[in-house]
C-alpha cells in the first residue's frame, strides 16, 4: 500500500439492510481469480443484475440508481460483511469505487480485511445511521466529508465522531507495509521460536 488515507469527500449510496454477507458482496463464482483486481464489475452480482451474464442491470437495486452513480461511500446497517473471510469482498468494493463503508456494525474478519486494503470501515450508532440514511435519501447529491485524522463524518448539518484503533488509523493514514514492519522484528520472532517446545 503506497498512498495513505486522510480526508475523503464524496457522495453516499444507501444500502439500507442488515446482515449484508460476503457471499452477496461477491458470490463464489467470481472467486476463481489469482489476482486482486477486476472484482468490481461483479460486486453485489445477484442483486445488481437480473441475468447471470451481467447484461441486465436491476433498476430497483440501489447501487444501480442513477442518482447514486459515482458514490464513493457505502452506507449499510448491522453486521456488514458477515460470513466468509474472502478478501475479494473489500477488493470488489474498492475496485467498484467505494473508499468508505459506514455501517451500524461490521463482522470482524471483514473489518480487518478493509483496513488491510485502504478501505475505511466506520461504525456509527443505530440512531446516527438513521440520520445519515435519512439525509442521503433526501438528497443524493449530499457531499459527505470523512476525516480520518479527526475521526469525524460530516454530512450537511450532521457531524459524528467515530472510533478506530490507533494502529489501524496510523496504517491507513501512512499506507504502511505491514509485513515490512513485522519483518523488522525478525530477531524477536527468532527468539520466540527458540523457546518453543521441540514437538511443535
Amino acid at each position: 500500500m503506497s498512498q495513505g488515507f486522510t480526508v475523503h469527500t464524496g457522495r453516499a449510496c444507501p444500502l439500507d439492510q442488515a446482515n449484508v454477507d460476503t457471499d452477496q458482496i461477491i458470490p463464489k463464482q467470481f472467486l476463481t481469480g489469482v489476482t486482486r483486481t477486476g472484482y468490481g464489475k461483479h460486486l453485489f452480482h445477484d442483486w445488481r443484475y437480473l441475468d447471470l451474464h451481467e447484461q441486465e442491470p436491476n433498476p430497483d437495486f440501489v447501487v444501480n440508481k442513477p442518482e447514486y452513480a459515482g458514490a464513493s461511500i457505502l452506507l449499510s446497517r448491522e453486521n456488514f460483511g458477515c460470513g466468509s473471510s474472502r478478501e475479494h469482498a473489500p477488493w470488489a468494493l474498492a475496485d467498484f469505487g467505494f473508499d468508505v463503508v459506514i455501517a451500524t456494525s461490521f463482522a470482524d474478519i471483514f473489518y480487518g480485511n478493509c483496513i488491510n486494503n485502504q478501505l475505511l470501515p466506520i461504525a456509527l450508532s443505530s440512531s446516527q445511521m438513521d440520520a445519515l440514511f435519512g439525509a442521503v435519501k433526501a438528497n443524493a447529491d449530499l457531499e459527505i466529508v470523512v476525516d480520518l485524522p479527526a475521526q469525524t463524518v460530516i454530512a450537511g448539518d450532521l457531524t459524528f465522531s467515530f472510533d478506530i484503533l490507533a494502529h489501524h488509523k496510523n496504517n491507513l493514514i501512512k499506507g504502511l507495509d505491514a509485513i515490512g514492519q513485522t519483518l523488522e522484528l525478525t530477531s524477536t520472532i527468532e527468539e520466540f521460536e527458540a523457546k518453543q517446545p521441540a514437538w511443535l
Binding site: 486482486r36 473471510s85 474472502r86 478478501e87 473489500p90 474478519i109 480487518g112 480485511n113 488491510n116 486494503n117 484503533l165 494502529h167 505491514a178 509485513i179 513485522t182 519483518l183 522484528l185 525478525t186 520472532i189 521460536e193
Partner: peptide, 20 residues
C-alpha cells in the same frame, strides 16, 4: 481463526499476525 488474504501473506512472510 479465519483470516483474509493480506493476513495469509503476513503469516507466510513472518509466521505472526498483529492481533488485538
Amino acid at each position: 481463526f479465519g483470516i483474509g488474504t493480506s493476513q495469509v501473506e503476513h503469516v507466510l512472510a513472518t509466521q505472526t499476525l498483529k492481533q488485538s
